[in-house]
Amino acid sequence: MSLDNKNNASKFYVRKPFLKQVNSTFHAYKQLILFVFFAITTLFILYVAAANSMFAQKARLIVMEIFHPIARLSHVPSKGVQHTKVKAHDWIFAYSKLQTLKQTVKEYKEREYYIQKLEHENAELRRLLNVTEAIHHVLKQSLSSHTQKTFVKSLLLGQGLNQGIMAQSPLVTQEGLVGRTVESSDNLTRALLITDLNSRVPIIIKPSNKHAILMGTNSDYPVLRYLPYGTEIKKGDIIRTSGSGGLFPAGIPVGTVEKVTADEAVVKPFAKLDSLSFVNILTHELNTFSSKFR
């Protein structure tokens, strides 16, 4: 029996969204009323969520905690594929990687002496000037999931407040800045990538030392906005966090200027955001006046 015949044969129980042919007036409008009701409800939810309501965040985290075990299971094959891909790449390019690593180790060993000297000097100067600054502890985290969708770029981490991870902590890798945590529940944390449409990072452009804001565009390349008038930027300029606002510590490498147009500058992030397996979370602990004289 074809589907059309089946539909016609079962008209007595068929529920249709807009119920064109029905007996009572109430049922004629029931689905239409439902549509209007849900559309208005959705717009209200959207308005509340856009206003950054704590209630919306809490509700989201509670549901995420419920679905997290299922989601983790669904993510297992994906992780396996990614792991195999990385392993195969390592095997194929093992020799060239070894040569690069040898060269890097040699360079680091040469710089070690100078770094120790600078660290000592820095500590001494801080002590003399009584500088108070936020100390960042690093927590290494594996990713639970990686939502790189066209309209949202976020990460889900399998640990939360119980492990000391709070909202608004910067996320970095060895290459550079990844993003920041936005919501934390007891055992889950959601983070926003620097490429997300909602992401804003205060940055400084080197070597011109001009400040600007890095804005996500939901593409792979965020852009620079609010540049001071007359700022000269060229391809290859280095972008680092400026530390303004206090959310991101100053000096974290972010990326390089990839393209400059009349309206904006496009930035290529250092961190490989599409193939993240681990991230480091910088958790704040203020070594300030209050903690010193507690």
Partner: peptide, 21 residues
């Protein structure tokens, strides 16, 4: 029904990290 679609959409928003709604 609209109820199913509404909750499916909410779930998509919650899991995906997009704005609720």
């Amino acid at each position: 029904s609209f109820v199913v679609v509404f909750f499916l959409g909410l779930l998509t928003d919650i899991l995906g990290g997009s704005l609720l709604g």
